[in-house]
Amino acid sequence: MRSRIRAASRYLQGMDLAQARAALRAARRVAVLTGAGISAESGIPTFRDAQTGHWARFRPEDLASPGAYRRDPELVWAWYAGRYRDVLSAQPNRGHDLLAELERQKGAGFFLATQNVDGLHARAGSGSAGGKLVELHGNLSQARDEQTGEVFPLPHPDELTLPPLSPGGQPMRPNIVWFGEFLPEAALDAAQRAFAGAEVALVIGTSSVVYPAAGLAHETRRRGGVVIELNPEATDLSAHADLSLRETASRGLELLMERA
């Protein structure tokens, strides 16, 4: 199987939809990277688009960095609490559901890495059907004990006291990767291994400019796997993908997973 996909990838320099569909159907190991585009259909604004109303006078870097948190943890928590409330009111969309279905088809051969912090993939069922879900940038519904590093779920926004304390009474920070911080080593290592071993990589709704996540699909490409991009706009990855569909996440996945 691997050799067939490698040969197709070298020869085609651009698959058509039927060939991409066949490659995805035949692949036993599929790795997926998602970005803000997949959650846009659920009404979740991008990171920078979340700067509206009262928060429009702040740069994201003023609210999402270790320095900002040291200066004013209550301000930072107020912003994250608002985003947390917003994502809880959103629902997974068709794109999230289709990726959960793809995991059910592929089982342990399925890997999903997301740059999103909204938790919608897990709510749609990803990571619960034999595959693996990794949240590279953390999750808005969680907080981390500043002293022990333990991660705890946040209570419902109506019951959330800011800044929150851990069960041990220690201050907690949002469980989010901030500007100037590294991605969690274990999560990144798992993603790099999965994409290096994938027969097909799907890159969905991400600009492909933020590294190291933007380099994951190139690991698949270098090892002869097929790279398929779903994005309404061209990105830095588009010229390197075997197929780049100018579609939303949900429509692109519908097309790829459609059976003849």
Rank of each mutant, 00 (worst) to 15 (best):
S3N: 11
A8D: 15
Q19N: 11
A22M: 12
A22K: 12
A23R: 04
A23S: 12
A26H: 05
L33G: 03
T34W: 00
T34Y: 01
G35A: 02
A36N: 04
G37F: 03
I38S: 10
S39E: 03
A40D: 02
A40N: 02
S42H: 01
F47M: 10
F47V: 08
Q51Y: 14
T52H: 13
T52R: 15
H54N: 12
W55R: 04
R57H: 14
R57V: 13
L63E: 02
A68F: 02
A68P: 03
A68V: 06
Y69W: 13
R70Q: 14
P73K: 06
P73W: 11
A81N: 09
R83N: 10
Y84L: 05
D86H: 15
V87M: 08
A90L: 04
A90W: 07
P92T: 09
R94Y: 14
R94E: 15
G95T: 02
H96K: 06
L98S: 06
L102G: 01
E103H: 05
G107N: 06
G107R: 05
G107I: 02
G109K: 00
T114F: 02
D118Q: 01
H121A: 08
H121S: 11
H121K: 04
A122S: 15
A122M: 09
A122P: 13
A124S: 07
S126Q: 05
G127D: 02
G127K: 01
A129S: 12
A129Y: 09
V134A: 12
E135Q: 09
E135V: 04
H137K: 11
N139F: 13
L140W: 05
S141K: 12
A143I: 11
T148H: 08
E150Q: 12
V151N: 10
P153K: 09
L154H: 01
L154G: 03
P155H: 03
P155F: 04
P157A: 10
E159Y: 14
T161M: 15
T161R: 15
P164D: 10
P167T: 08
G169K: 07
R173E: 10
P174W: 09
P174M: 05
N175W: 15
W178I: 04
F179P: 05
F179E: 05
G180W: 03
E181T: 04
E181M: 03
E181S: 05
F182V: 11
E185H: 14
E185A: 15
L188M: 10
D189T: 15
A190M: 04
A194K: 00
A198D: 00
E199A: 03
V200K: 00
A201C: 02
L202A: 07
I204W: 01
T206G: 09
Y211R: 14
G215T: 04
R223E: 10
R223I: 06
R223L: 09
V227Q: 02
I228Q: 01
N231T: 11
N231D: 13
N231F: 05
N231V: 09
E233Y: 07
T235L: 00
D236Y: 14
L237Q: 03
L237A: 10
A239K: 09
H240F: 14
A241Y: 03
L243P: 02
S244T: 14
E247N: 11
A249R: 06
R251P: 09
M257T: 01
E258H: 12
R259Y: 13
